[in-house]
Amino acid sequence: MRKQRIKGRFATKTGNKRSGGTTRRKRLSSGSKKGTKAYVLIAPVTVEENVQEKGKPARNDKETDRQIGEEVHGPLLSVIIPAMNEQRTIAAVVRECSRICRDAEVLVVVNGSTDATASEAKRAGARVIQYAEALGHDGGRRVGAAAARGQILLFTDADIKVPAEQLAPFVQAVLKGVDVALNDYNGPVTRNPVHPVVEAKHMLNSLLSRSDLGGASMTAIPHAISRKTLGIIETASLEIPPLAHAKAILGGLRVQAVHHVPVGRLNAVRSKKRSEADPLSQVVLQDHLEAIRWMTDTRGARGGYPDLERVRSLTR
């Protein structure tokens, strides 16, 4: 079966092979200075696959871009990076995000920083939104999403340098119709005991009848959403990722774990005494409780689950 080369604009690993054949790639100049990496174009699907999936004739990338951009005049992609005192890593993170595709903006929401995070981000080419005060956990996501102009929003962190080749699949998934493209990361489930945050992610997906997602969650980065998703889950809910996650699934959006990025291994270990409680874990657990409360508020006391044959009124 002959594959049709379809232009894309995403960074991909060169020299990699897919099972069943080698993906055809073409290296293009990125227009950057000598010594920088070039963009790599990849044919994502064949003509036959496109027809089979969509039930209509295949479109080329120019037609796709026209449809994506016809309602909103802005970049295709907005990458949102909250940052607080991350001057050592922010420039490298911004540069990787800038390589994902040509039609992109990188927004760094610098809040509560006392170092050179903002200037390093600007020097690397980011659009910087700055607050003197700390916005709190995930507050930067909400602020960045409200300011973003792109039709796809990709979220990542300032302290983890994820290669552009590992970020591009999330953007590609949204282009192909996924509303929320999650990191296919389950967390360290083999540890004994399992971390309570890992348990909470699995539990919430089970309550949402999406146990197929495992521990994939909007709490973890990287993940991408469509602008349509932002309208349904509301920008404010991004401050509480499990709540945004629940709203997306119960709102009928297409939520998928699309690509595995081992953020647990990439993330720098932050030192703390074993006897001390982890305040961040406590925040994330409370976020999951808020998601469950929203489910019971909107779907009844049992969150939409039946009570079967119990007649509670007769036992009073």
Rank of each mutant, 00 (worst) to 15 (best):
K3W: 12
K3G: 14
I6W: 13
K7C: 13
K7G: 12
R9A: 15
F10T: 09
G15P: 07
K17C: 12
R18V: 13
S19R: 15
G20E: 02
G21I: 06
T23C: 12
R24V: 13
S29A: 15
S29H: 15
S29P: 14
S29L: 15
S30C: 12
K34G: 10
G35T: 05
G35K: 02
K37R: 15
Y39F: 15
L41D: 13
A58V: 08
N60G: 09
D61K: 14
K62A: 09
E63G: 07
R66C: 11
G69V: 01
E70L: 11
V72E: 10
L76Q: 01
L77E: 01
I80E: 00
P82T: 01
P82K: 00
E86W: 07
Q87F: 10
R88Q: 14
R95F: 08
E96A: 03
E96D: 06
C97E: 05
C97L: 01
S98E: 02
R99A: 11
R102T: 13
A104H: 08
E105S: 03
E105R: 09
V106I: 06
A118Q: 01
A124H: 03
G125N: 00
V128C: 00
E133V: 08
E133Q: 10
G136V: 06
G136K: 07
H137K: 11
H137M: 12
G144E: 04
A145L: 07
A145R: 02
R149P: 04
I152F: 02
L154Q: 06
T156W: 00
D157S: 10
K161Q: 15
V162P: 06
L167D: 04
P169N: 05
P169T: 04
G177F: 02
V178G: 01
D179M: 03
Y185W: 11
Y185T: 10
P188R: 11
R191N: 10
N192E: 12
V197C: 09
V197I: 09
K201T: 08
H202S: 03
N205Q: 02
L207P: 05
L207F: 14
R210W: 01
R210I: 03
D212G: 07
L213F: 06
S217Q: 03
M218C: 07
M218A: 03
I221C: 14
I221N: 13
K228T: 12
L230F: 00
G231S: 07
I233S: 02
T235P: 06
A236M: 11
H245F: 00
A246V: 03
L253R: 07
L253N: 02
V255D: 02
A257S: 00
A257F: 01
P262T: 03
G264W: 04
L266K: 09
R274L: 15
S275C: 11
E276N: 13
E276R: 14
Q282M: 14
V284D: 11
V284P: 05
L285T: 04
H288Y: 09
A291V: 03
A291L: 05
M295A: 01
M295D: 00
T298I: 05
R299T: 09
G300L: 06
R302C: 11
Y305K: 14
V311T: 10
R316M: 15
